[in-house]
């Protein structure tokens, strides 16, 4: 139990999936222009990442590993993720209009978010237990959301400033991401996860 907590906090801070593993960069750079949309995407990522890491753990441990089909994990994981996203989309469309308006447009983006698949792959490589996988999925989701929210806040503030021509857009966003990564390295002393 205690170790699961350590995994959670390490995934949020010291091993932030975005800032140390570079996963989910594409949507990070594309969607981080406004705080509001970032919040929607961040929330969707937290939900999907937590659920898919648990689902994939179950599938991997109870189906793939006993049958010796570990090499099929890429296909199986991505199908689980895509199916889950599809189902969630259909459910929230029926259940809540407001929720659908807030999260709906982000869900299709999430299937191809590398961070979601990345979490499942890291979980297998590090051979986490069930609780640790849950903690790792949730922690990575929260860490990703924190990073994109901070990024959107910074980008909104500097929106009006003049930057060198070639640095506009992606270039500047990468510099900010670099500085954020430096800041997050400050957490390194607290704990480490391999």
């Amino acid at each position: 139990m205690g170790h699961a907590f350590a995994v959670f906090f390490a995934a949020v801070f010291t091993n932030n999936i975005l800032l140390t593993n570079y996963l989910g960069m594409c949507s990070f750079l594309g969607v981080s222009r406004e705080v509001k949309t970032s919040m929607g995407l961040g929330a969707a990522v937290v939900v999907v990442m937590t659920a898919t890491s648990v689902l994939n753990w179950l599938v991997y441990s109870f189906v793939l590993a006993p049958l010796g089909l570990e090499y099929l994990r890429f296909i199986v994981f991505i199908v689980v993720i895509a199916a889950f996203v599809q189902i969630v989309e259909m459910v929230i469309e029926r259940v809540s209009d407001t929720l659908y308006a807030a999260l709906g447009i982000f869900l299709p983006l999430i299937t191809v978010n590398c961070a979601i698949l990345g979490v499942s792959l890291f979980m297998v490589i590090r051979s986490y237990t069930f609780l640790e996988s849950l903690a790792y999925g949730a922690g990575s989701g929260v860490g990703w959301a924190v990073a994109i929210l901070a990024m959107a806040g910074i980008r909104q503030r500097i929106g009006g400033s003049r930057v060198p021509k070639g640095m506009e857009g992606a270039g500047l966003a990468l510099v900010i991401a670099g500085i954020m990564a430096l800041a997050f390295m400050g957490f390194n002393g607290m704990m480490r996860l391999n």
Binding site: G166, G171, L174, G178
Partner: peptide, 19 residues
Amino acid sequence: VTAPGAFFMLAVFIWIVKG
């Protein structure tokens, strides 16, 4: 070799190419 270096390196590369 750490994460921030990668971000800065790519940013500089994009800057040079675009500029």
